[in-house]
Design a protein around this nucleic acid. Structure first.
Lengths: 136, 136
DNA sequence: CGTTTTCTTTACGTGCACGTCACCTTCTCT
DNA sequence: AGAGAAGGTGACGTGCACGTAAAGAAAACG
């Protein structure tokens, strides 16, 4: 019975964004909710796209970059006009993401080492030798 | 013989940033080059920090978040005053990064699938049945 | 020595991603 | 019918991360 479309408020509650944000994304052609009168109704497609938008943002992509990616994710609708172009763009993005992934994995390792070092320091503070902090 | 310090221009060439960016980072206390007269000289420490800054940016962290992370990476200098606090912050960041890593890995999988689909489409355009693009 | 280049500070400008406010329409409920 | 509540359209404001232009000092070069 979920009519497969959602109001702007339902969307906001579901995805933790503001109405302004959804209207903004529409203005940038990232979303294209249907209109009933002048009310927006967000379809399953809009929801799928919004998920990808939010994900892309967490990876540090700009909305414009995300828009280009989204184009690939629904080439089904479109003509093959710019298909190859979009395909190439997506391949580049993939390379970006894989590089980012590798770098992230390395950064996590680094941070873990730092944390391990920090943990040991804390241990030695807690149960270490007499500290002369009461010298004043 | 590299004097272990670099001018602003050397830094820019080395890391692909502008002088403005380096000064901006200094104003935000992300870097603290020494001064010779009023010229900036960037040390090994500054360079290490800059690498981490640029990396953090690629992961979508804000400069403020990065600044907090940097504090951990050189706790060696500092007092243990806010040590535990910083340690906790870093642990949270680690969780963020691990979550991001997992999400990124998933996104890469998704995108790869899309690309595979796209590749097949292109193949069928190229060597598929007669295209009627040569109609006129 | 003067000139050119590099660097400095100060300060206003810019693009992105929204926030906020004012004001208007359209249902919904009692 | 009156009163909210929800949604809409401008349009201006904001925080971040720098860009850019102006004006001066200092170093390097011929």
């Amino acid at each position: 019975m979920t009519e497969d479309v959602m109001t702007i408020r339902q969307m906001c509650d579901e995805y933790g964004v503001t109405p302004r944000t959804l209207r903004f994304y529409e203005s940038k052609e990232l979303l294209s909710p249907i209109r009933q009168g002048n009310r927006r109704l967000f379809t399953r497609r809009d929801r799928a796209r919004l998920k990808l938008i939010l994900r892309g943002k967490r990876f540090g992509f700009s909305l414009e970059e995300i828009r280009q990616l989204l184009d690939l994710y629904d080439m089904g609708d479109q003509q093959q006009t710019q298909f190859r172009r979009t395909y190439e763009i997506a391949k580049e993005r993939l390379v970006d993401m894989e590089r980012q992934r590798d770098e992230l994995i390395e950064a996590i390792e680094d941070l873990k080492e730092q944390l391990e070092w920090g943990r040991k320091m804390i241990e030695s503070f807690d149960s270490g030798p007499a500290t002369d902090t009461a010298k004043d």
